[in-house]
Nucleic acid binder design. Structure first.
Lengths: 151, 151
DNA sequence: TATTGTTATACTCTATAACTATA
DNA sequence: TATAGTTATAGAGTATAACAATA
C-alpha cells in the first residue's frame, strides 16, 4: 500500500477535527456534569428505546459498564428503565422529559460552540464539506449496530 | 442566529466523524493498552519536550491528572521525566525510543484502519476534503495553549 | 507571594468474573 | 445450555485540596 499524500493529509485533518469536536463535547458535557459517554447515551435515546444489551453493543461497552452509566443517569432523573414486553429478562432504557430537555440544551450549546469554526466557511462550502464527509461516514467502521441480532 | 441548514448538516457530519475517528483511535490504543489520553500524550511528545504544566494546559487537564498519566507511561518505559535547565521547580517530559517506536506503529495502524473510509473518495476529493477542513481547524476552539502564561 | 509538581482523596468509566432469572 | 442484567472488584482517568520546593 503506497502511502499516498492525499490520504495522509486527510487522516491528519480528520484526527485533528475529531479531537477538536470531542474537546467541545467534553467541555459542554462537563458544564452539565455529563461525561462524553453519558452525552452519547442521551443522544442515542432521543429517538430510540433500546434494551440494555443493545445499547451496550451500540456503544461498544460491556453490559456491566452500562449498568453503572444507567444507574447514575437514572438517579439524576435523565432516563428510566422499564420492562420489555417480549422478554422478561430484558430491560429497556428510555429518556425522560428532563433528559430530553437537557439534550436539547446541549445540542444548542454544541451548535453555538462550533459556529465560529463552521462559520469560517461559506454556506456553499459547508454543504460541500458535509457531502464529502458522507462517504467517509458510511458505513460505520467501528460498531455495526444492527437493531436485530444477526451474527 | 438563524439556524441555517448547511451549518446543522455540517455539524452533524463533524460530530459523527469525530465519534468514528475516536472509536478507531480508542480501539487501536486499547490493542496496545493505551487510553486515548496516553495516545495523545505520545503524539504530542513526538516533536516536543514540554514541562508538566505546559503539557497539562495543552491537554486541558489538571496537573495532578498529568502526574498520574506520566507515572504510568514512565513505568512502562514509553516516556521519561527530566529536569528543566532554567527552572529548578519544573519537570520536562520526553518520549523514549520505545515510546517513539510504539507511536510509529500506532500511526500506521490508524492509517490502515481509516483507509477503507478515506478510500471511498478519489484522491482529488481527499485533497478537497482536507482543504475544506483546514479553516474549520484553525485556530483551535477549545484550548489556547500559549507557552507563556498571559491571563 | 506565586508557581511547579506531587500526593491524598473521591468519583466516574471501564472490564472481568460470578451470580440470578429467564429463554 | 445460553442470554439478559446486576453486583463485586480492580484499575485507569479525572478534579480538588493540601503540601514541599523553588521563583
Amino acid at each position: 500500500m503506497a502511502p499516498d499524500d492525499s490520504t495522509d493529509v486527510l487522516i491528519d485533518g480528520l484526527v485533528r477535527s475529531a479531537f477538536q469536536v470531542m474537546g467541545v463535547l467534553t467541555r459542554i458535557g462537563a458544564e452539565h456534569d455529563l461525561s462524553l459517554t453519558q452525552l452519547r447515551v442521551l443522544g442515542i435515546l432521543r429517538d430510540r428505546r433500546p434494551r440494555m444489551s443493545d445499547l451496550a453493543a451500540f456503544l461498544g461497552l460491556d453490559k456491566s459498564t452500562l449498568s453503572g452509566l444507567v444507574d447514575r443517569a437514572e438517579r439524576r432523573g435523565l432516563l428510566a428503565r422499564g420492562p420489555s414486553p417480549e422478554d422478561k429478562r430484558a430491560v429497556v432504557v428510555m429518556i425522560t422529559d428532563a433528559g430530553r430537555d437537557l439534550v436539547q440544551r446541549l445540542h444548542e450549546d454544541v451548535r453555538g460552540a462550533l459556529a465560529p469554526a463552521t462559520g469560517r466557511l461559506e454556506p456553499q462550502q459547508r454543504r460541500q464539506l458535509a457531502e464529502l464527509l458522507e462517504p467517509v461516514l458510511t458505513p460505520p467502521l467501528v460498531h455495526t449496530p444492527r437493531p436485530t441480532a444477526q451474527r
